[in-house]
Design a protein around this nucleic acid. Sequence first.
DNA 1: CCCTATTTTGACCTTCCTTGACCTTCATCT
DNA 2: AGATGAAGGTCAAGGAAGGTCAAAATAGGG
Lengths: 153, 153
Amino acid sequence: MPSLTEQIERWLKEQLLRAGGNTLEIRRSDLAEIFACVPSQVNYVLATRFTVERGYLVQSRRGGGGFIRIIKLRMDLPEQLQGLLSRGIGESISQAQAEGIVERLWEEELLNGREKRMLEAAVSRETLGVELPLRDVLRARLLKAMLLALLGE
Amino acid sequence: MPSLTEQIERWLKEQLLRAGGNTLEIRRSDLAEIFACVPSQVNYVLATRFTVERGYLVQSRRGGGGFIRIIKLRMDLPEQLQGLLSRGIGESISQAQAEGIVERLWEEELLNGREKRMLEAAVSRETLGVELPLRDVLRARLLKAMLLALLGE
DNA sequence: CCCTATTTTGACCTTCCTTGACCTTCATCT
DNA sequence: AGATGAAGGTCAAGGAAGGTCAAAATAGGG
């Protein structure tokens, strides 16, 4: 049985597709009611599954008439990948962030399944197996170098 | 009477066959309950019976909604690649050696151009950018993990 | 029977998810 | 403007998985 977080994640992505557009607006309290959970559960889902790395922008407004808006960022061109390489990936990156980027590129069909798995393997804490300040630095270098290798057809 | 370890091993392999696919996902705690044993017994079975040498890859996730995933590796590949993964690549490897392996796999068409470039980027001295005893160790881990990723599914 | 290798257990650790108390912002009504 | 209620935000504690390691138990071979 998928976790609540996963259920909410799927539901939101489905709504995004169904709406056809790239934007979804909903009340946090409504979502919480649909899934019979506390409202802050929604914030957890947004914070872990709809990050910028994964290609989403989340906006919101408090007070009466408040809402949460999820915007799916499109990455249609390799040019954007270049942007990712030059600006998006810094000197150091966490595993979660790196996986978000890989997940997004895969969803955008800029990577196939084999390439995705290779990147995930390379970026994994376990594979790197060194302690923390260095691990994140190494991961950033690898991710950049590997993605760059894909661009240079 | 077969040992607990053997019973669990058989059961898992049977489930893998039954599912038809090459992947099985299950909760460690469920498995422990089925066989009325401590959860860590499952780890022992995985560590001794579902190793890379025996043709399996094990992945997992902790926390709520956690799971253990067993992937049966493709066995239709030349012995070379499998041999490489279980014995050929040691704890440490030079750039020249690593590049030789990648080149060979590419010539045998086990890797395409994109995959070759990703691997070369990952094993490059410049990308790794750490000093020597560690660099070769890291390279060996990356090469193994990335090639292994190609054998899943 | 003894010695060794393998298996079984359990205490303790890390990661990820869920919940709830408390805080901030906004629209609207006096 | 000030008060009020209706949103959403934050954060820390608790819970729910799986991981690790070493000691204890057992099985097998000589």
